[in-house]
Nucleic acid binder design. Structure first.
Lengths: 179, 179
DNA sequence: CGGCGCATGTAACTTGTTACATGATTCC
DNA sequence: GGAATCATGTAACAAGTTACATGCGCCG
């Protein structure tokens, strides 16, 4: 539980950061398998600080409106490692497009076709971005001990998005023949 | 929004059902891309009834403790169709295993290996079940106008689970060489 | 006669989103 | 000077989970 806490702890294990930077990284690098909102993030940072798992180091840098940089404390690292060792228990996904596909005999083939085409385009963009990220990562693979494992995550994204595109193609062909 | 409402409306569009039956179907047929809890389901049924989108028909059948069967009303069908025509906007997924993979340089390769093996086994089971469902569905494909589209949903599950297994295999090989 | 499956429901809680407020700096 | 980006935060709301309560029928 409290998965947001572990994302924060994990990112801070790489380097000290502000809440804003954490959000940016999640939106950029985790976007194909994770999301967080500021409404979750900032309160989580406060709570982790209060509990001594992280600490605020560089507050109120010149210019910036009270910019707060957080750092991981030993206790935070310990809890992060404990969590990493626990079996994965939550695998939540909700794919609205499959729900719509399932009930789509109630609308025209063209309507459903539009949905699937939008789905394909989204995941084509995702795939392109992931392939770029992979190339970049491979060129600096020895720079950080974490990189080979991050590459496994990127490869997951690539593999799954390719599967999405395969399905989209088949489905568009099927719906096209119906229409 | 209120996605739960549309799942309920959709299932009732196929035939009248009790809340319990709706839950069973979601757990069985939708489990690889959707989930609902009773705590969401029963209040949703009440709210849809109050708003006149569905109606309670066969209450309190002999024996059973106040069994309530619900039916879709024309207004409910209309709202369902409106929703089906709207573009898909929510694609929520949160894959804890990728989060753990990303930060797994903080634990041993063996630990992460265990997680990935559990993941593979789960999705092997899912894949087997989906292939069975596909065979069954193909044998009765003409029985209901909905079946060809349900088959597209099952095929999504198969395609994606195959991708999961491909990734699991590669990742287990990588982590094995590390350990 | 005990356990399982059918069956419904609620309350407390946790989790997550959205809208809003604020305000400085940087780039054009 | 205005837009975009950096930056933090909260309140109200929406969504979702868990634990619990209740109780019948059926099967062994």
């Amino acid at each position: 539980m409290r998965q947001t806490e572990f994302v924060v702890l994990g990112l801070l294990s790489e380097s000290p950061m502000t809440g804003y930077q954490i959000k940016k990284i999640i939106d950029l690098r985790f976007r194909f398998f994770w999301n967080e909102s500021y409404g979750q993030l900032y309160p989580t940072l406060k709570s982790l600080t209060r509990r001594g798992l992280i600490e605020e180091t560089g507050t109120a840098r010149k210019g910036r409106r009270n910019q707060r940089t957080y750092e991981l404390k030993p206790q935070g690292l310990k809890e992060l490692q404990d969590w990493l060792a626990q079996p994965v228990e939550r695998e939540s996904l909700r794919l609205e497009i499959l729900l719509k596909m399932y009930f789509s005999n109630l609308v025209s083939a063209e309507t459903m076709l539009g949905h699937v085409e939008a789905f394909r385009e989204k995941h084509q963009r995702d795939l392109k971005w992931l392939e770029l990220a992979k190339a970049e990562l491979e060129s600096i693979i020895d720079r950080h001990p974490n990189h080979p494992r991050v590459l496994r995550v990127v490869d997951f994204g690539i593999t799954v998005n390719e599967a999405y595109l395969k399905w989209s193609g088949e489905t568009i062909r099927y719906l096209g023949s119906e229409a």
